[in-house]
């Protein structure tokens, strides 16, 4: 039991401490037993035989270099799709958010709201198939299309929440020193909105990176598909080592980006001058609440943790 206070349990007394100690030992033993049983079962099935040689001494006259080069190409393609889609999605999302902020006509705000809701409410895979089968685009651009449409809509919503969260005085101050509406939004409001919502934006980029794996289904040669192609070439026996390499790569990349977001969030909290002392009193009085509500409702923005 950690020292921090918990809402569920009282501070443990001598009896609870004894019980905790016993349960600790029991559950550790249970977990070790389960792990040992799984590994033994695998051993029985011959998982730990020479099939792992595919990673350093593959059959069929291939060299280890060939296998690793193909896997590296897969990682490269995964990152390429994400690297093309992310800036476009951010740019379009920001544009939509700015237009919705500045637009006074019902028609513009209404239609952009409908389009964002639609793009957010559809499976990314549907959009990828639209690009592939109807527009006839290449797999790479189908993947990029699906990722851009969906993530631009989400980014627009995140930034809209961020803009709505700013204290009114920011806008009034901008207008009162003679900036136009557009310049007020661009120069004063948007930088602050991005700053509040940066963790949510980064976690959305992790989601984008994760979703590149959908490229497997639309025949884009990303990491998972390369694993599958290698398996088709070498045979089903060699799937487990190849899959393990692929899965670990995905998880490590995503964990690294998520950690970056957590670190960035912590750094922003500590850094002076950020979103403070604007209207006097509480930093971001309404803003904090709005951002917290957004986080609570969407599960996003909790330190760069990818959403579903």
């Amino acid at each position: 039991m950690s020292a921090e206070a918990s809402v569920l349990y009282d501070a443990p007394g001598p009896r609870a401490k004894r019980l905790d100690a016993i349960l600790n030992v029991v559950f550790t033993a249970v977990f070790i037993a389960i792990a040992a049983w799984i590994i033994y079962a695998w051993y029985e099935r011959g998982i730990f035989d020479d099939r792992w040689e595919v990673l350093w001494d593959p059959p069929k006259n291939q060299t280890a270099g060939d296998v690793w080069m193909s896997l590296a190409r897969g990682v490269g393609n995964t990152l390429k799709a994400a690297a093309i889609a992310a800036p476009i999605a951010l740019a379009i999302g920001a544009t939509v958010a700015i237009v919705r902020r500045g637009a006074r006509r019902r028609l513009v705000t209404g239609s952009s709201a409908v389009v964002t809701e639609l793009a957010r409410g559809l499976p990314v895979l549907m959009l990828m198939f639209l690009a592939k089968l109807f527009f006839g685009w290449s797999p790479l651009w189908s993947v990029v299309f699906g990722l851009v449409v969906y993530n631009a809509a989400v980014v627009a919503e995140i930034l809209r929440a961020g803009l709505a969260a700013l204290p009114k005085g920011q806008r009034e101050a901008g207008l009162s020193i003679g900036l136009s509406m557009m310049r007020t939004t661009l120069l004063i409001e948007l930088p602050q909105a991005v700053r509040i919502m940066l963790p949510a934006l980064i976690s959305q980029m992790v989601v984008l990176l994760k979703d590149t794996a959908l490229g497997y289904i639309v025949a884009y040669d990303e990491l998972l598909r390369v694993v599958k192609l290698n398996r088709d070439f070498f045979g089903d026996r060699y799937l487990i080592p190849l899959f393990l390499v692929g899965a670990l790569t995905y998880i490590l990349i995503n964990v690294a980006v998520s950690r970056l977001a957590v670190w960035l969030e912590g750094r922003m909290r500590r850094s002076p001058g950020a979103a403070k002392k604007n209207d006097g009193g509480d930093p971001m009085p309404e803003g904090g609440a709005e951002a917290a509500r957004y986080t609570a409702n969407t599960g996003r923005g909790t330190g760069g943790v990818p959403g579903p």
Partner: peptide, 28 residues
């Protein structure tokens, strides 16, 4: 949220790994 350490560790590990795994990989 339980007070038993190993259970907490298992839960945390599971959630961290699964959340960072693409769904397509899970299906695969």
């Amino acid at each position: 949220v339980s007070p038993v350490g190993p259970l907490r560790t298992f839960g945390t590990l599971y959630v961290e790994v699964v959340r960072n795994t693409p769904l397509t990989l899970m299906f695969f």
